[in-house]
Amino acid sequence: MTYTFQFGVLAQYQDQILHGIWLTIRISVLSIILGCAAGILLASVRSIWGGAVRLLVDAYVEIIRNTPFLVQLFIVYFGLPGLGMRVGADTAALIGMTINLAAYSTEIIRAGIEAVHKSQIEAGEALGFTRFQIYRHVIIVPAIAKVYPALCSQFVLMMLASSICSAISTQELAASAAFIESQTYRSFEIYIAVTLIYLALALALRAALALVGMWLFGRRVARRTMAALPEVQA
């Protein structure tokens, strides 16, 4: 093999890379906030109302979890304009990521809610809590604390999966890499560098989520969050 690596060319394209990193961070953080909020809402609604609402939520979760993210993006980006909704590549990426993450969050939080023991709820009733107080203090907050590490692993996976949005021309980090590759033909160097950037982003995101976990739920949850590897959802 007579290939000489030239990482020097990357320096010229610093701006492109930084721009890509910034967009990756923005769509990831936004979709995490929106997806997690939707997940809490859907898991709550599902456990409170039951019946047809539960069926609908479960169908949504199963459909999203059993189809590829790439195809979901295609439907949002190429399919929606046909129905009269024109969306840009960045917006489509954000919509796709939020829809995807909402389904996974719902599933994870549902498991947390179902793990809350019935005696806890009865204890809340015995203390004279209102139904809303029970829901908030006894069910949803402990449930989220319990599944927080699994939730964070899913957030990290979503950030990594945001690279797939380059396929619908969202100009995030993977798209920046593709652009620089087309300019310089230094494909291997560029993809090694960008892979390392993704690795650093994944570690940084996990650390940031652990800090949030410490602030919300205390030290023990934060430690579990740092240690957790992406769990594979069946």
Binding site: V156, L160, S163, A174, F188, Y191, Y198, L199, A202, P230
Partner: peptide, 19 residues
Amino acid sequence: QGIPVLMILFLSYYGLSLA
């Protein structure tokens, strides 16, 4: 587990042709 599948794909795609 810390890098995107897409990057593994690109690295093997370009890595194999480089070799």
